[in-house]
Each structure stands twice: as C-alpha cells, then as structure tokens.
Computed example of a mutant assay.
Amino acid sequence: MLRIHFSAGDMARTRVADHPDPLWESVLSLHQLQERQSDPAMLHWQKHVISNGRAPLRLLLPLVPARGYFPDFLTPVESAEGFEAGLDALLSTPRPQLHLQLTRLAKDKPPDPWLRAVAEGGSPVLHRLGEALRAYRHHALGGMWQRIRDRIEADRAWRSRTQCLGGTDAMLRTFGPALRWRPPVLEADYPVEADICLDGRGLLLIPSYFCHRAPVALADPALPPTLVYPARAVVPAATPPPEPAGPHLARLLGHTRAAVLESLDGECTTSELARRVGISLSSASEHAAVLRNAGLVSSNRLRNSVRHSLTPVGLALLGTGPR
C-alpha cells in the first residue's frame, strides 16, 4: 500500500494536471502492451503496435518491464509542456542519475548491454533512445491521441469542478476503490509498502488513459510528488435532451428528488442537503439513498456525518458531467 501524507498546506497545493502527459502515456502504454490478459477493447491496438513498432520496442521494453520498477527519468516533469519538451529533458538527464536508476532496474537481472549503454549516457545511445520514443509514439499513440485527450480532459473537468465547488477534500473523495482518502492520508493500492510525506509541496494528480488498476507514483521521493491514476471512461453521450434539468428532470424523478439532485454542487452532509432543499433530515436521507441506489449519488461516512456528492452519471444527467 502507498500512503501519501498531507498537511493543510499540501491541500492548498494539490491539483489535477491540465493536459495529458505524453511521456507518462507512452510509458504506461508499454505496460499495457505487455498485459497477458488485456482489455478486449485493446487487442486491436496491441496487434497494430506490435506489428508496426518492432524496432522501437526492442529498445524500449527493456527499460519498462511489465511489472515493478521503471526509471523516473522516462517521465520528467517537463513532459507536461509537450512531448518534445519532455523528450529534451529526458535526454538531458545527468549521467549519475541515469547510472543510479538503471543500476536499480538491472538489479537481479541478466546483464543487458543496451541498459548498460544507456546508463553510460553517451550521445549516440541517447539519440537512439530519443528516436525510438518518437517512433513508438507515432505508431502507438498517434492515431488515438484525440481519444486519449477526450477521456483525460473529461476526467480532469469533473475532478476540477468538484475541487472548485467542494474543495480539495471533496475532490480526493471522488476516486474509486483503488484510492481512498482518509484525512490526512491518501491511501493507494500499490505493489510495495511506501510512505510519501508531501511536506508542503502538494500533490500533482495526473489522469491517464493507459494507467490501469493501481495508481503509479515516482520512485524517488525527492522528485515533485506525482500520482498518476486511471482516468474515468467518458460517459457516452446519446442525443442530448433540450433541457437536461428543470421541469424535465422533475417529471423523471419527482420535484423533491430532482431538487435534491440539483442541490448537490460539491460534497455536502445530509443536514446541509436538507437545509438546501428545505426538507426534513429523514426525508433528505431517504432521497439520497434512492439516488445512491440509482448510481447518481455517492455517499461516504466521515466520523459522525455522511457526505454526499454526484457521480459522473449524476453529473451527466444534470448536463454538467464529462461528455
């Protein structure tokens, strides 16, 4: 399990990344490419990449094994500014850092001349690595980058809206079972036991198309705290109704229950919900339970109160969720 320890200052400095990170997507797609029991929807993509990207894969797969550690230098913070900016930073990694990380990667494995050459940091070798990453990105991500962007931006919009309306505490409660917010600690399913103390630096959360199951963090605690998590699938948009809320929603759910749903901007307790709608506490609890059972609302107990927030389906029904 991974435990990330927050202070009050960290809450103020925690945010969701503005855009897809091309190097994180490249590295995590290499993980996905090696999955033995892959999502059936990814099988066509896997076959396409394997048949068209054999040359770059020979150089990249030794750096990114299917399980366990991979070097932090492959995902520099500069990648947030775009692929070329990230690649320039990657290829400028200091030699001592390359040697340290690749020595760790090669531990308990048969000697690999390619890894040893990258660890030495020679210009011709790093040039080959850069060309392999460019070619792999073209074959693996080029044709689906818009799909990747759409999913990540929809996820980011939802998390950021929740953070804007309900604060960072509410946003940290929006993640699925693999991430659990138990103030002041964010727990994540992880292959090893680890603790990260943010120490006022805050946390950058990066939604990812290719991150599956467990979130991923940088191995070096001295680097800017980063957690990559699986972006939620985009809620399919059928032909949108002319008025997603208001009287149409009231006819669907009933006036009071529609008012309860529409009042859930951000996270709120049952008592706050009752005050917003002007109903009794027991009535608010009952309506929240019905909406929760319908998948429109999620509820979490925090000490002596229950806090409610809209799910992606609930947001979509109101016309404000990810599309």
Rank of each mutant, 00 (worst) to 15 (best):
L129P: 15
T93I: 11
R36Y: 12
M42Q: 05
R36V: 15
V216P: 10
S263C: 02
A194P: 03
A55V: 05
Q146F: 07
R182W: 12
S280H: 12
L90A: 08
L2I: 07
R13H: 08
L100H: 11
Q97I: 14
L98P: 06
V277F: 01
L203G: 05
L317R: 00
Q163E: 10
V77A: 11
R301M: 01
G266H: 08
E153N: 11
L141Q: 02
L59N: 09
G143D: 14
H255F: 05
R137Q: 14
M171N: 03
G142W: 08
L100R: 15
I206T: 11
V260A: 04
L253K: 02
S263K: 06
A154K: 04
T103D: 07
A89E: 00
R95K: 15
G167F: 07
N52P: 04
G246N: 15
L90D: 02
A222N: 14
L172Y: 00
S280N: 05
A85I: 00
T269L: 08
M171P: 06
L317F: 00
L264R: 00
G82Y: 03
E153D: 14
G314P: 03
L23K: 03
R149L: 09
V235D: 13
R128W: 01
E153V: 14
V290G: 05
G82P: 03
F70P: 06
L273Q: 08
F70N: 04
T269I: 02
L179G: 01
G53D: 05
W145G: 02
L261T: 03
S299I: 15
I152A: 02
R147N: 07
L165Q: 12
S285T: 10
R151L: 04
A316D: 08
F70A: 14
E84P: 03
P65T: 06
L115C: 10
A289G: 10
T103G: 13
P312C: 13
D265S: 13
P71S: 12
R301C: 01
R58W: 08
P22L: 05
R54Y: 08
A140N: 02
V228E: 02
L227H: 07
S283L: 13
D39T: 09
Y69R: 04
D112N: 12
L60K: 01
T320V: 15
H48W: 13
L186M: 11
H99N: 13
R3K: 13
L23C: 02
A217C: 12
R3M: 01
W24P: 04
P240F: 01
V290R: 11
D155W: 01
R276G: 00
S309M: 09
W114T: 13
Q163F: 06
N300L: 11
W158L: 08
D10H: 07
G130P: 10
P124N: 00
P113N: 03
L2H: 05
V216H: 04
R151E: 12
H127K: 10
D199E: 15
C211F: 01
R95G: 09
P183N: 05
Q101G: 03
R161Y: 02
A12I: 00
L223M: 08
L60D: 09
E286N: 13
S123C: 07
V277K: 00
R147W: 00
R307E: 14
S285H: 11
P40N: 09
P20V: 13
R54H: 13
P56S: 04
L28F: 07
L302C: 07
M11H: 05
T239A: 08
A258Y: 07
L315W: 09
L227Q: 01
